[in-house]
Design a protein around this nucleic acid. Sequence first.
DNA 1: TTTAAAATTTAGGTATACCCTAAATTAAAC
DNA 2: GTTTAATTTAGGGTATACCTAAATTTTAAA
Lengths: 144, 144
Amino acid sequence: MNKLLTRREAEYLKVAFDLSSEKTSVGSLDIANRLGVSCASASEALKRLSEKGMIIREPWRGIRLTDLGLKEVSRIIRNHRIFETYVYRLLSVSLDEACECARRVELHLSDKIVDSMCRILGHPKRCPHNKNIPAGVLCCVELR
Amino acid sequence: MNKLLTRREAEYLKVAFDLSSEKTSVGSLDIANRLGVSCASASEALKRLSEKGMIIREPWRGIRLTDLGLKEVSRIIRNHRIFETYVYRLLSVSLDEACECARRVELHLSDKIVDSMCRILGHPKRCPHNKNIPAGVLCCVELR
DNA sequence: TTTAAAATTTAGGTATACCCTAAATTAAAC
DNA sequence: GTTTAATTTAGGGTATACCTAAATTTTAAA
């Protein structure tokens, strides 16, 4: 039972997370619509995510992210937004391109690299799109 | 006919490139040995690489990278080494970790981002392992 | 309360990427 | 010319990811 998420599974997890803050109950149909995929595909993907311990499925009640799932999705979002902010601010790359590249590398960045970028940026709270940047578990520690 | 290489195909292409500078003739067996894979798997992978226009296969004569293949592998190697050098030098990350992460993101970095890192580093000729860094097609242009 | 509608899952199929072993082929070396 | 070595093909296996159609379950309406 492999813990690592595939690119696509991460996509499902991110959508599940996003929808969770928009609606009280999130079902496979919501996720299928958002991803432009059939209900059956979404259902399968969610099953795999729950097998990997990322979500809890309660059919007709909606899904819930587990602590592991929340940790994972936060890490991915943090990776994306710190990388994007860094590249946009310090490498003079357009926001579109920074975001696009961040999407491609977000799964593959290491915590240390992202924390280092974060430190250099002065631990920003928001990305250039003005979205929240989750804190790094070990980042900022030296400031306390 | 999709032009983009998969992670694994890029691995095969890199090995093909490396071996080409070590031996006069590179066959599927050489590549299979280097990657720890059966001859049959290597043969298949090389077939796919030739369908994507990256190499020319001349059985019992060995393979040759096409111009496209050389361009592609140079881009990947450049991405790896510039990223690794940048992260090592400017983000205070260990060389092992920089290299490991570079391996994971090398396929996904955009030229603009890599060129920007390259400019900031002063267009280095070698990575911290002292390996050659291929020039970027559009990098350095403003210096001429 | 029963039934119809909506949400969801399961079953069965397709495609792609990898990998394997065993068998067939082809070139090179003796 | 045969044998040996390299290579490819054939046939299978697993995993991811998608689909449609059918079955299931819940909710809501008549």
